[in-house]
Design a protein around this nucleic acid. Structure first.
Length: 575
RNA sequence: CGGGGUGUAGCGUAGUUUGGCUAGCGCACCUGAUUUGGGAUCAGGAGGUCGCAGGUUCAAAUCCUGUCACCCCGACCA
């Protein structure tokens, strides 16, 4: 490829709307162009990067016996009605109608399509297990796109669906996919990846993992234990909040104290001279049908709303407390709570005593609350948000650290949710009808590309790993009006290509600064500079984008040296 | 959907408070000359319904009303 024919412009100034580096560099470098909120076109360099990532994924999916298929982008609404998701999924599923008024949806995930594809084929146990996957455009009408390719509405995704005759078989295959994912990230040159236990969200199912690229610009919070290796999305992280109560606290009587005008935990605890850990806080939510849910939790902890929603199996929002609700905002406590609403207790209160809490009476709180004694029959569940420094839920010893991460892949054990809903069965060896169990496995291709850029760049541009770089070699000919230099550069270009290397060739008659800046923005790992100055010494310069290699090679050996360097860099990313 | 902010040429911006604009500047683009190892210099040139629609006014980028889009924080997110 000749650079002077490459469509797309590179420019010096950082676009004002770009907040994260990878976004800014990929716009500045002529990789992509904004079309609409969360929708981008890709220029050739990005398209090539995408294609290489896709190929790595394809090879690794094939290696675990995946079969590449292709599902439609536009699916009939009726298929989504079969699984129940036509109604259950929110407005991120883009719904539309065709000319006959029939409902259609734009595919945002393809469990339904996968079941539909293999429903008949999978009628006999002899055909299991199998996995189908596709690499294709998805559309999700995200409420808020951000960060360039990090969070978009239209994106390329690899999604895979496996079918099994037993949970054990699924679990064994799940582990294989886990390892395949690790290989994909390693080959793509992304280093800082961790797999975390995750919340399964709308996909349903039980066990799932998210592969997270750890970066300060990530949008998810991760809870990591530096000692035992516990890793979880904060949404799913169990919170261990021991609340040991001394005998003295347990024997203290429940007493009502006046707390005029004090409605917050801070005010009440300050007034009573108690630490926030010695308070019982009420947090009020409302379900879609307006019914109230009162959740009691230790005063120093926050609610993890994902846990709450999973527990209730219903969405909730922060409540608007009306006068006729029977709830007295600021004075709500577990004792003498009259309102007929659902009451939940966080595990942090289990066995606690000597607490203060609202007295369900304006301007009064209780002290000496003993959960066991005063709230008989309370059931405790985990609703609290894990905090930096909390004890690890797994080893119980070491302090949890919180990091930010970008989800670049996930794997789910789906179970029979879709096969059951959509009536997919097989006959086992004894002729009994059974439900296949499913797994699904996704990787966002563009997000992975952006993550690599985010991890590997400098002030001048991306530093692409050779496995996914748009080209392997960037050949610059300075002073292309010099006959000798131009002739050698031309011949080297042909020679490198003939040896099977991917070369971008810049022979524009421009100042060196412009050429080097463009080369930096394209981030090609191996750079060759041919110039009259070097030609005088009979050599050319060979260097790497990350500056780890910088050498001069005699013109006669240039092609050999470049080839060796390309092989060496490629070898470092081969498994 | 809530809070905050911004819309001026492909990109980055000045001007908006206090109406006087025929809208200025840098990069990029075109022509010519001189240059050529880290985003050159000089000269000339093209490119704008100042987000959109109403309104006020002799006069609107500027004031008013409405609307749309985008960005940030939050909510949401296989």
């Amino acid at each position: 490829m000749k650079l002077d024919k490459l469509v797309g412009e590179r420019f010096k100034e950082r676009p004002a709307d770009c907040v994260i580096d990878s976004h800014a560099l990929m716009v500045r470098g002529g990789y992509m162009k904004y079309v609409a909120n969360g929708i981008y076109s890709q220029y050739m360099p990005l398209k090539r990067i995408m294609r290489k990532i896709e190929q790595i994924i394809r090879e690794e999916m094939d290696a675990v016996d995946g079969q590449e298929v292709l599902f439609p982008v536009v699916l009939p609404g009726s298929l989504w009605e079969e699984s129940g998701r036509y109604e259950s999924v929110g407005s991120e599923l883009l719904r539309m109608k065709d000319r006959n008024g029939s409902p259609l949806v734009l595919g945002m995930t393809h469990e339904e399509a996968a079941v539909q594809l293999v429903r008949e084929y999978g009628g006999s146990y002899t055909r299991y297990p199998f996995m189908v996957y596709q690499i294709q455009t998805k559309f999700r009408d995200e409420p808020r796109a951000r960060g360039g390719l990090i969070r978009v509405r239209e994106f390329t995704m690899k999604d895979a669906y496996s079918f099994h005759t037993s949970q054990e078989d699924l679990e064994a295959y799940y582990k294989e996919c886990f390892r395949a994912y690790e290989r994909v990230y390693k080959r793509a040159g992304l280093k800082n990846v961790v797999a975390v236990a995750s919340d399964s969200g709308m996909m349903g199912g039980n066990i799932s993992h998210e592969f997270m690229f750890v970066t300060p610009v990530g949008e998810d919070s991760l809870a990591l234990c530096p000692q035992c290796g516990y890793r979880a999305n904060m949404e799913a992280a169990e919170c261990v909040a021991p609340a040991p109560a001394s005998d003295g606290e347990k024997s203290r009587a429940l007493g009502k104290v006046p707390t005029p005008g004090m409605q917050t935990i801070e005010e009440v605890c300050n007034f009573l001279n108690l630490p926030k850990e010695k308070s019982c806080k009420a947090v009020i939510y409302q379900k879609d049908d307006e019914r109230y849910v009162v959740l009691f939790i230790r005063g120093d902890l926050e609610i993890n709303e994902t846990k709450l929603i999973n527990f209730l199996k219903a969405t909730v929002r922060t409540a608007v407390i009306t006068e006729d609700s029977g709830l007295l905002a600021g004075y709500i406590g577990p004792v003498n709570l009259k309102a007929g609403c659902e009451v939940l207790y966080d595990r942090s209160l289990q066995g606690a005593a000597g607490l203060c809490c609202g007295a369900n009476e304006v301007n009064y709180h209780f002290t000496g609350l003993n959960m066991e004694r005063d709230c008989p029959g309370a059931v405790f569940n985990d609703f609290a948000k894990i905090r930096e420094g909390d004890a690890c839920p797994q080893c119980g010893e070491h302090a949890i650290t919180l990091e930010r991460g970008i989800e670049i892949g996930n794997i789910f054990q789906l179970g029979t949710k879709y096969t059951k809903a959509m009536g997919m069965h097989y006959l086992d060896s004894e002729g009994n009808q059974q439900l296949p169990v499913m797994g699904c496995y996704g990787i966002g291709v563009g997000r992975l590309a952006a993550s690599v850029c985010e991890e590997s760049h400098d002030n001048f541009g991306p530093i692409w790993p050779i496995s996914i770089a748009p080209w392997q070699v960037h050949l610059c000919c300075l002073r292309a009006d010099d006959g000798e230099a131009k002739a050698f550069a031309d011949s080297l270009y042909k020679d490198l290509q003939a040896r099977g290397m991917e070369v971008i060739y810049d022979d524009r008659l421009l100042s060196a600064g412009v050429m080097f800046s463009d080369a930096d923005l394209l981030g090609v790992p191996v750079r060759v500079v041919v110039s009259p100055r070097n030609m005088k010494d009979g050599c050319c310069e060979i260097s790497t984008r990350d500056k780890s290699v910088s050498m001069k090679a005699p013109v006669a050996e240039a092609a050999d040296e470049v080839e060796a360097l390309v092989k060496k860099l490629s070898g470092e990313l081969t498994i």
